[in-house]
Design a protein around this nucleic acid. Structure first.
Lengths: 162, 162
DNA sequence: GAAGCCTTGTCAGGAATCCTTACGACAAGG
DNA sequence: CCTTGTCGTAAGGATTCCTGACAAGGCTTC
């Protein structure tokens, strides 16, 4: 009588990934709401996620974020208006502009990364440090395998490890 | 010389979850495109994800999918027009209707679940059976902890296991 | 260096998705 | 009944993202 009466019908992994992702983002957004960067909307995240110190071209950002240049342009327009990013001419190509974080933008990025780290630590307390670390390790491997260009941080780490 | 020159700055778990989720969905959608159910759009997924044999009310579906009743209604309208679902009066409440899968809808759901199982098996070959199984186990625990109502399959499994 | 072609970013228009507000129909408790 | 709340729907709007087209600048080839 132990086995289930019907086939178990495993829930798709995508459903589990989605629940985990959305739950984590909910915690993040709630905390961001209460911060001094409450004027940032979810859409703006792709910029803070991908743009680093040296700046990035719009086309590259759009490619990484898997959106069109037009959409990326609108998002950047917003962030420029809010004072988080600026466009500077690309010294290597007079057509292009580098999207750079302003000091305010860098503060926001650091704050956001800090919030994410807090949420992860909280989940470690909730589900076990080792499980979350194993989860991260596996996900890093998957991300590096499926979409390495979207996780440049990992490449550096890999290089350091080799 | 082993430690990194700068702080590692861990990539947020949300970014990793996002890459894994989108990669998996990409594989799924590509295969769905080539199937007989190519007229299904990503938005329609929430219905097949949550509606089971006995049917479900619109309000409940909207709550599970974290969207408004109006949005859910539009999606259901679409699927009714495509012949995947039907609305039947709820015998327990004359205001309500139960959203049920038609035979075609059940075929599509089974096909979709099969595709997801295939993708997962493929990832097992790519990243190791044990890692993917551990990933699933941890994600199931997280999903049950963060949003149990969105993964009813797990409740049943838990009950059977207890 | 001129012609042709590619890339960069932008503009214009539209499609898709989801929301807020409001409402009629029905249910449940007094 | 009458009030209150829930179920589903209608109408209109906001957001997000897309397709198509374009000028400006770079790149290749002759």
């Amino acid at each position: 009588m132990t086995p289930a009466p019907k086939k178990p019908a495993r829930i798709p992994l995508t459903g589990l990934l989605d629940v985990a992702l959305e739950s984590m983002l909910d915690e993040f957004r709630e905390e961001l709401e209460g911060s001094e960067f409450a004027d940032l909307r979810p859409t703006h995240g792709c910029v803070f996620r991908f743009v680093r110190d040296h700046g990035m071209r719009l086309t590259k950002l759009a490619e990484l974020a898997s959106i069109t240049k037009q959409s990326a342009g609108e998002i950047v327009d917003d962030l420029v208006a809010l004072g988080y990013v600026k466009r500077i001419p690309d010294p290597e190509d007079r057509r292009a502009k580098l999207i750079c974080l302003t000091p305010k933008g860098e503060e926001a990025q650091a704050h956001g990364f800090g919030l994410f780290a807090e949420v992860e630590k909280r989940w470690m307390g909730r589900y076990g440090r080792e499980k979350i670390e194993a989860l991260r390790a596996t996900l890093e491997e998957i991300a590096a395998g499926e979409r390495p260009e979207a996780v440049p941080e990992l490449e550096r780490t890999e290089l350091a490890g080799v």
